[in-house]
Design a protein around this nucleic acid. Structure first.
Length: 421
RNA sequence: GUGAGCGUAGCUCAGCUGGUGGUAGCACCGGGUUGUGGCCUCGGAGGUCGUGGGUUCAAGUCCCAUCGUUCACCCCA
């Protein structure tokens, strides 16, 4: 019985890794421009951290966490909580009142896997802690859009406001009352949601619920004046930054800590998994985790596997893996003995150099060189070794020249890759 | 947790109403080229048809179970 990877996790093989590297490289470059610094966080945290931040009654906490019950430790189902924990723990606010941080890594949720959804997946997470201005909300969305644009991805931005502890309870009551009146026309899931998470009904995919929800009271029409003002300013700023978006009055969040601005970057190309990035404001969460009072915050996370899928899917984008600078084909034990240190020297000089020790036929070695996408092949046989001259073949042009082995690796590097040597 | 589909070579898949598993494609190895890759050509290796039962003279094919997997629901990046 072969041992296979467990359900919901995936090996990322090297031909796919180019997409991951591109995402990370692009993200890091953009974060640099926006003054967002990296922070690396543990994957394991006290279970309580997630229960308190994400919410005891959320699906994530209730049934999706990988928890070592006997140790009270959980593998993070998201990054925001960990990042805020670190912020509070190290008192980062005293170094710089507004902290702009990002973190990249795996997160874990025990859900049934499907397209674009795994049990171990990876997020690029960005948080701006300590700034309450609506311009920050807009800036973050503009940055998200810039990032996705630079990855050549075609996505749309939807935004909404969820209000705050001032206005949401009233709206919630209003909505519950509305839903109760129409209880019979709701789907079974939504009947259940009325008490548990009434806002969720707004986001239901069932036709019947959808139609009914059109007439339902919407959050944006029931914001308190402070929230309304904030949201209006966010939208105004988005316009100034020329970020196009649509208002989705029915967008809600699955995590309890969100308030005011929420947003999602969506695609129609990933089946049921529309959101490639999502986030929102969480004023109050930092305080709730023991941090300074009235610390606002906002952030979002991007799903890396979803981005990878999209990159591969949209416009057949393909990332090419770079090839070797040179392959040394050595024929015979003596040539192999000579070539090995030569290859080592080339590597020291910064070139990607390769050879094969198994003394295979030249044909086989040429084939291998081709597979490695080598720019050049240096052929060293018994004869060449005796004469001190290798045959240097340009693999693209098929041109061949003699190369005097006495000239050494540095000269060879100069010839084949002057930019690297 | 719920529902549906699919498990045949490393990968992608044929295999009809049951009758000996395919010169299949890609990839791999070797020959054609006594020492030259990609293209071509010839050959080779690679499988207990997911597993366990059942029906049958006979099961990759039908039935049941089980495991795995995919998609969808729930939920979410």
């Amino acid at each position: 019985m072969k041992i296979k990877a467990i359900n919901g996790v995936k090996d990322i093989l090297s031909d796919e890794i180019v997409y991951w590297q591109k995402i990370e490289k692009t993200a890091r470059d953009i974060f640099r421009r926006f003054g967002i610094n990296e922070i690396r966080l543990p994957i394991l945290e006290k279970t309580e951290l997630f229960a308190r931040s994400i919410g005891e009654a959320t699906d994530i906490v209730e049934k999706e966490m990988y928890t070592f019950v006997d140790k009270g430790i959980t593998m993070r189902p998201e990054i925001t909580a960990s990042l805020l924990r670190a912020y509070v723990e190290h008192g980062l606010q005293v170094r710089q009142p507004i902290q702009r941080l990002f973190s990249i890594g795996p997160v874990f949720r025990h859900e049934r896997p499907q397209k674009g959804r795994q049990r171990q997946f990876h997020q690029v997470d960005v948080e701006v802690i300590g700034a309450q201005e609506p311009q920050v909300d807009a800036e973050l969305m503009a940055m998200g859009q810039m990032l996705l644009n630079e990855l050549n991805l075609d996505v749309s931005l939807e935004i909404n406001s969820l209000g705050c502890p001032e206005c949401r309870p009233d709206f919630r009551k209003k909505l519950i009352a509305y839903l109760h009146e129409r209880h019979d026309s709701l789907c079974d899931d939504c009947k259940r949601r009325i008490e548990k998470n009434p806002l969720r009904v707004l986001d239901c995919k069932q036709q019947g619920c959808r139609a009914m929800v059109q007439e339902a009271p919407s959050i944006v029409d029931n914001l308190c004046s402070a929230c309304e003002e904030h949201f209006a300013a966010v939208r105004k700023q988005l316009d100034r930054l020329e970020v196009s978006y649509t208002l989705n009055r029915f967008m809600v969040r699955g995590l309890d800590y969100y308030n005011r601005t929420t947003f999602e970057f969506l695609t129609t190309d990933l089946g049921a998994q529309a959101a490639v990035a999502a986030g929102g404001r969480y004023d109050g969460l930092v305080e709730q985790l023991g941090g300074p009072k009235n610390t606002p915050g906002i952030g979002f996370a991007m799903g890396m596997e979803r981005l990878c899928l999209l990159m591969q899917q949209q416009e057949g984008q393909q990332e090419e893996q770079g090839g070797a600078d040179i392959f040394i084909a050595a024929l015979g034990e003596q040539a192999i003995a000579f070539a090995a240190p030569f290859v080592h020297q080339l590597r020291k000089l910064g070139l990607q150099a390769a050879m094969d020790y198994s003394n295979r036929s030249l044909k086989a070695q040429m084939k291998q060189a081709g597979r490695l996408k080598a720019g050049f092949t240096l052929i060293i046989g018994e004869q060449e070794l005796e004469q001190g001259r290798g045959i240097l073949r340009n693999m693209d042009t098929q041109e061949q020249n003699e190369f005097s082995l006495q000239e050494g690796a540095a000269m060879l590097a100069e010839v084949i890759a002057p930019d690297k040597a």
